[in-house]
Design a protein around this nucleic acid. Structure first.
Lengths: 123, 123
DNA sequence: CGCCTATTTTTCTGATTGGTTAATTAACCG
DNA sequence: CGGTTAATTAACCAATCAGAAAAATAGGCG
């Protein structure tokens, strides 16, 4: 028996998408895709104060997109891509819709051909 | 020559992800995946007032996720999945990371073997 | 025209967000 | 111990968000 976790999943997607809805945070993820980094490392490219970055990281952490270690006075951040896989899966649900354009184009071409064939049945 | 649209793309992703960061809005998209619907149709399943739904639709529209027609006093909504394809593409950038787990497991096994071999060089 | 239905705009909440500066904690280094 | 570096917390601000209620607009329909 599998109990339903629908609302939990939905809540998690809320958090994930909210975390991704900020270009600073997405840039942080991009940086972390290259490998582990400290808060200072992550802050370097931005014209933002350290506390601002610290907050962004906390949002990403809360969304389960990054995890943090502890080495001396550093708190190295690591990307956890599990949630990104969920985002991908979620979006893929709709693939048939954006792919349908091709189907419709197909139909269009087929219809054109049919009209053409009706005009000149044996061309 | 291709001019850079990096920040524009980033802004668009901000809007897209922000629009998706709400389960009501995602439910609206799910409903629209079944086909066109009016604002009242879309509002029906929710314990929310019509203006609330109207606002949600406006957010989705602003993010380019839905487009609306005009038939009499109805404003039928249609899903435009182009942005969802962009979301999918964005997430796919990170696929190698969530796939890498297998690689890392590989490495782990290889390391174990190496340690084992060092202990018993000719086993 | 006046009514009914569909939808939006306005106005008002309380909560959240993204940012700041200043102060604080944590851990190392001499 | 005192100083330095890494990072967080606290307190604050302006802007945005999600919702409600009430009023306004838009377009048939009798």
């Amino acid at each position: 028996m599998t109990i339903t976790t629908a609302t939990l999943d939905e809540d998690r997607l809320d958090d994930t998408f909210a975390a991704l809805a900020n270009s600073t945070r997405r840039a942080i993820l991009a940086r972390l895709a290259q490998g582990e980094a400290t808060v200072n490392d992550l802050a370097a490219p931005f014209a933002l104060t350290l506390p601002a970055i610290s907050k962004h990281i906390k949002v990403l952490e809360h969304a389960g997109l990054v995890t943090r270690g502890r080495r001396a006075q550093f708190r190295p951040c690591t990307l956890d891509a599990t949630r990104l896989a969920e985002v991908s899966d979620w979006a893929e649900q709709y693939r048939h819709i954006w792919d349908d354009r091709f189907d419709r184009l197909d139909t269009y071409v087929r219809d054109l051909r049919q009209i053409h064939d009706q005009k000149e049945p044996h061309s």
